[in-house]
Design a protein around this nucleic acid. Structure first.
Lengths: 150, 150
DNA sequence: TATTGTTATACTCTATAACTATA
DNA sequence: TATAGTTATAGAGTATAACAATA
């Protein structure tokens, strides 16, 4: 048996039957396209998600935003600093609790969000072309069931 | 309207309809469980995947293994160094092309792989308890379609 | 020239601890 | 004392360039 070369086929073994591995690989298929689409608007995937959540929840406070994004408060700071310095969001002290900062998107932030959203959706749709609508529905339903509280 | 507190509910907006975001979140639900299960065998998720592919493809060469794992050759080196130093794999020069190293799992590596696989599968099954078998089948089928060559 | 394994390096994302100001 | 935002830092994972050995 000759040694394998880099373009040989290989067996995935058990990995094909592990959902975690399959989810990661599927994500790795979609992610570069989203990244490229968002780069055209000067956003990273993470700053896009952040902006999207701010637009969907005007006045959200940083701690809640971090929880919604499932990330640490501390890691959110530089992302908001960037969005803020680009005039896409505003941080304002909450009256009655001056520890907290309520975040709002500016009109420019809202507009950028709409453009970025359209680009990501377009790039995803291209990759979903292989799937039937019922397959897509089943996929989202299964992901919802997975994410549902255990 | 009072400011939101950290345990308030929030709207995901468009993100709920973006597959990339949903895949990542589902993955983030499974990953910590797999990580904890593998830690009991002294493996990381990435070293487990590497060992699994070596077991499924005895004699695979490093460049092919990196391609199978969808990672850079250079990033594979420290992972193999670790598996090798623990006596789980062997690297042997390929006769006829002395640039290449064929990787084999040792009996200890095979045994560890089997134990680790059982642990990961068990941890995944707990999280899949919410889903019916047909939902699971549909999920894997949709992921295969997503991964299929475009 | 091109490829394999390797080293070095940098960048992103993530995780933790500790600080400040407020409560 | 507890919480919100912040800073600093360290750890993974990932990506690129360049090198020595070999083809």
């Amino acid at each position: 048996m000759p040694p394998r070369s880099a373009d040989d086929q290989f067996a995935n073994g058990i990995l094909d039957h592990l959902l975690g591995y399959r989810l990661k690989r599927a994500y790795m298929r979609l992610q570069p396209a989203a990244q490229a689409a968002l780069a055209e608007e000067g956003l990273r995937v993470l700053s896009f998600s952040t902006l999207a959540l701010i637009c969907a929840n005007p006045g959200i406070v940083q701690a809640s935003l971090a929880a919604a994004l499932q990330m640490e408060r501390s890691n959110l700071v530089p992302i908001l600093d960037d969005l803020n310095s680009r005039g896409l969001i505003l941080r304002q002290k909450v009256e009655g609790d001056r520890r907290r900062l309520a975040i709002h998107a500016t009109p420019e932030g809202e507009a950028l969000h709409r453009r970025a959203e359209a680009r990501v959706k377009y790039s995803e749709d291209a990759l979903l072309a292989n799937l039937s609508q019922s397959q897509i529905d089943a996929l989202f339903a299964a992901l919802s069931a997975l994410e549902a509280k255990v």
